[in-house]
Amino acid sequence: MRKIVPLVLSLVFMSTVAFATEHQVVEIEVTGLACPFCAYSVEKSIKKLPGVNCVQVDLANGEVRIEMRADHTVDLEQVKHAILNAGFTPGEATMSTVDE
């Protein structure tokens, strides 16, 4: 019994570390964006992509932050196409991963 309890606790700790959810995040420049109504068009277009969890537009800096769901990876070409389809121009993008 003395051996089992630490073993179980160790497994629980390891599983917590192993299954910590990671989300892909893309931050991409969008040019031509200059009013709230237009920002919503971009947001709406990106949200249609599969696996997108959250879209945040920073109007002043012309940047869009896209957070993917844990079980999805981002397709940057799809993101750029969504921005173009909304009527705006995608710029440089940076990708990162965040833990939840």
Binding site: T31, L33, A60, G87, T89
Partner: peptide, 12 residues
């Protein structure tokens, strides 16, 4: 039809 589109950061 949008014939000309010149986008820059913060303006178009």
């Amino acid at each position: 039809y949008t014939l000309v589109q010149r986008d820059q950061p913060g303006h178009t």
